[in-house]
Amino acid sequence: MLNNTAILSEVKKVTQIDILSEAKNVFEMEGKALNLVKEALDENFVKIVELISSCKGKVIVTGMGKSGHVSRKIAATMSSLGTSSFFLHPAEALHGDLGMISANDIIIAISYSGESEEITRILPNIKIIGATLIGISGNPNSSLIKYSDYSFVFPLFKEACAMNLAPTSSTTVAMVWGDALAVCLSKSYGFLESNYALFHPAGSLGKKLLIKVNDIMHSGDRNAVVMVGTTLKDAIIEMSTKALGIINIVNEQDELIGVFTDGDLRRTLSREVNVYGLSIDDVMVRTPLYIESELLAVDALKMMKENNISALPIIKEHNLIGTVRVNDILGVGIFV
């Protein structure tokens, strides 16, 4: 019996290969397979896109083993891009999950051999239920293709695995085929960035397209506000208490009259003025920049960066309702 040292020695002998050459060969072989499938795209693919775009039910993607992993990804990508879909594990389908399928649904079944046992065993039931079956395979004579209402058969190519056994090229082409399907469907719906953001509220794009300044502003007692005529001393106390770097000055109708910032305070103090003898009216900026409450936070951030300011008052129907700072926007994960 070989000891651990001897086993490791044997492994090292086996793995002494030209690694870069082998890696590049995988890229080359899978690239060739992709080009073959690209050239094989025909009216069958067009029909599949048209069929799914007019589907009244659900789109269900299924596959076993490596094809199952690919199927999960395809279902997830389609869902992200506007096609409501989910993955169905064929083994679980055999034990009750076939109840998820209805006659209005479309099933996309992926099996390169077309003879995966778990797939072939659910095909008769899919037909009985009345769902439309789309078979994706590399074997035109397979059970999957024979059962399918619509199909796409991959052209012949080699797996990138040195033994031509492990699913490599076949999973890559299936993944890209699914991406092409999802993208074409998305464009046929007129799917926009705003739609994508709706399905990805936690993502960077979702935040940029959904979060408005009034969602993150400082308002009410958290906002720094004084009335016109307030002494500069009292205004400084209010500004330091709220710690926003800015104080808003309003009239009796809550209309914004001016602002006074930390920078304005430093400039005022550098002139050695008597802060006890001045009103905020004497030092405020009377034509301040401001933003409307419905403005997207990302646009407010751009505005502040362009004007080199750290905070902005927020207005709704001519009245001051809050303040937003650069840090507030960056803090929710929005960057430009």
Score class of each variant (00 low, 15 high):
N3S: 02
T5E: 13
I7E: 10
L8K: 13
L8T: 01
E10S: 05
V11Q: 12
K12M: 01
K13Q: 12
I17V: 14
S21V: 05
N25K: 15
F27E: 14
M29V: 14
G31T: 01
K32Q: 15
L34E: 00
L34H: 01
V37W: 06
L41I: 13
D42N: 15
D42C: 12
D42F: 01
F45V: 10
E50T: 05
S53L: 10
S53Q: 12
K56T: 09
V61T: 05
T62G: 04
G65R: 08
S67D: 10
H69C: 08
R72Q: 14
I74G: 06
T77M: 05
T83K: 10
S84P: 03
S85T: 01
S85Q: 08
F86M: 11
L88G: 02
L94F: 00
L94V: 00
I107L: 14
I110Y: 03
S113K: 08
G114W: 06
G114N: 10
E115W: 07
I119E: 03
P124W: 10
P124F: 02
N125E: 12
I126P: 02
I126N: 01
K127P: 02
I128H: 08
A131E: 03
I134C: 07
I136M: 07
G138I: 07
S142Y: 04
S143Q: 07
K146P: 00
Y147Q: 04
F154T: 04
P155Q: 10
A160Q: 10
N164T: 05
L165K: 08
T168S: 14
S169D: 04
S169N: 05
T171H: 07
T172I: 11
A174E: 10
L181H: 07
V183A: 08
V183D: 06
S188T: 12
N195T: 01
N195M: 05
A197I: 09
L198T: 13
F199R: 14
P201S: 09
L205Y: 02
L205D: 09
K207D: 09
K212Y: 02
D215L: 03
M217T: 02
S219Y: 11
D221N: 14
R222H: 06
R222N: 13
N223W: 00
M227C: 00
V228R: 13
T230G: 02
K242V: 04
K242G: 03
I247V: 15
V250I: 15
I257T: 07
T261C: 03
T261E: 10
D264C: 10
L265G: 01
L265C: 01
R266N: 04
L269Q: 05
R271P: 00
E272Y: 14
E272W: 10
V275P: 06
I280F: 04
I280A: 03
V283H: 02
P288L: 11
E294K: 10
E294P: 00
E294Q: 13
L295H: 04
M304G: 09
N308A: 12
S310E: 14
A311I: 12
L312C: 11
H318V: 09
H318N: 15
N319L: 11
T323W: 08
V326E: 15
V326G: 00
G331V: 11
G331M: 12
